[in-house]
Design a protein around this nucleic acid. Structure first.
Lengths: 92, 92
DNA sequence: ATTAAAGTTATCCTTTATGATAACCACCAA
DNA sequence: TTGGTGGTTATCATAAAGGATAACTTTAAT
């Protein structure tokens, strides 16, 4: 059995799929944060300053070890010169 | 001077515009939550049950008086049968 | 090899989001 | 009018987010 089919079977389980989807979303969230800041050409310290906080907090945010609030996401995006919206897509 | 031009002038101020953008985003967030649940045809109590919480908390969430965490948004979306992503668009 | 800048990690403290419960309002059907 | 359903509000307790500071690692430049 290949890894692919193993993954398929695992994802056939609705419970597993839910967790998987959540993980995917978390990954993409962090990716988006990083990509916003890098295309803005800003350092963590610069973003922190614009947000009125500390660079260590930005690092914590970007390392994915936390669970940011919506307002924090908005502020971060704004500091990087972006506007934010959520995209909801029907699943299953 | 018309209301329109007054608004334009106000929005010409970067600080004002930042706040305005944040508000717009907050509105659209709540709209999306409501729309997810209504297209799913679920009651607050049903969503609450799927999320493992209480209907009063769902109400609080939807009334916009709070600032939900990303995971809370993911859970809510999932309970309504949606997947979530953030869309970042360059501004100004 | 040194230095400086960028990023990471740990810790403490304060604020706030979230869970839980209970009482309430609005509406509609029986 | 009564009962049921969907939604709201208030309050409390607890878990967790976010701010601040400091020490540390990594990386890049000279």
């Amino acid at each position: 059995m290949s890894l692919q089919t193993l993954k398929q079977q695992a994802l056939a389980n609705p419970q597993v799929r839910e967790e998987y989807n959540k993980l995917e979303n978390e990954f993409s969230l962090i990716d988006q944060l990083l990509s916003m800041r890098s295309t803005a050409g800003l350092t963590q310290a610069q973003v922190a300053e614009k947000m009125g906080t500390q660079k260590s907090n930005i690092s914590r945010l970007e390392k994915g070890s936390s669970n940011p609030s919506w307002k924090t996401l908005l502020n971060y995006a704004q500091a990087c010169g972006f506007q934010l919206a959520i995209k909801a897509t029907k699943v299953s």
